[in-house]
Design a protein around this nucleic acid. Structure first.
Lengths: 118, 118
DNA sequence: TACCGGTAGATAGCAACACTGAATAGCAAG
DNA sequence: CTTGCTATTCAGTGTTGCTATCTACCGGTA
């Protein structure tokens, strides 16, 4: 993974985590592990925790401290109503952006053997 | 457009511009107008010029000064070989990220099938 | 001529975000 | 008690896009 992915994650990682929490509440360490499992191999704990603090301070998630058998108590995050709205906006932005970019993708694929104005 | 789009553009705008240049060389003002035309209504000249200078200094584009009938000479940018490789990497990162996010999108559609609320 | 609006580019400073790299803290097993 | 795993926190850094302003060239109009 290069620097491009790093920069691409700015603005999307937040949505990714919120969407993950929408599916099912989780705590920081768990989220990091899940992301790593999904292929985001270069995301480290520090990044996720900072993000969680951010979305907590914005009131997008509810927090519950749950004692764990191993280690310090877990802070379990779950998406609340406000977070749901925010996530909906995220999807809107994403859909818009993805549509434009996919369009560019197809164009650059086409332009090799075909001439078309637009 | 909200702050989400702003943050989402970080890391993607560069690719968007490079892809645009791959389709056809252009100068800054023109690119800005084209982006505006495509719906990126909040992107301003300053942003694009700074980005173009960045990718020029990285050697991703070739520059040619072309006199214009109106205003100062245009700096026409065109993607070169190195820029092509960079763009290819961009698409790889994009494909990966888009795949993960679309997956999350479908999942969250499954868990709660309301996709519009405001 | 002198001014104004549109075209075209450049620059300085700012805010947001993810990364690096560590430190801290609790518990279990050796 | 020390090691190792779980789990969280924090300070510092770099990249990026935005805001706002400035320079410069041209044609039209008063």
């Amino acid at each position: 993974m290069g620097k491009q992915m790093t920069e691409m994650l700015k603005g999307t990682l937040e949505g990714i985590v919120l969407a993950t929490l929408a599916a099912q509440p989780a705590y920081g360490y768990e989220i990091t592990a899940r992301l790593r499992d999904q292929g985001f191999s270069d995301i480290v704990e520090g990044t996720v925790y900072a993000l969680l603090i951010r979305i907590e301070q914005r009131g997008l998630v509810d927090v519950e401290k749950v004692p764990s058998e191993k280690g310090p108590p877990r802070k379990v995050y779950s998406l609340n109503a406000q977070g749901g709205e925010y996530l909906a906006e995220f999807w809107k932005s994403w859909d818009f952006l993805a549509a434009r970019i996919e369009q560019l993708h197809r164009h650059s694929d086409n332009s090799q053997h075909d001439h078309e104005g637009e």
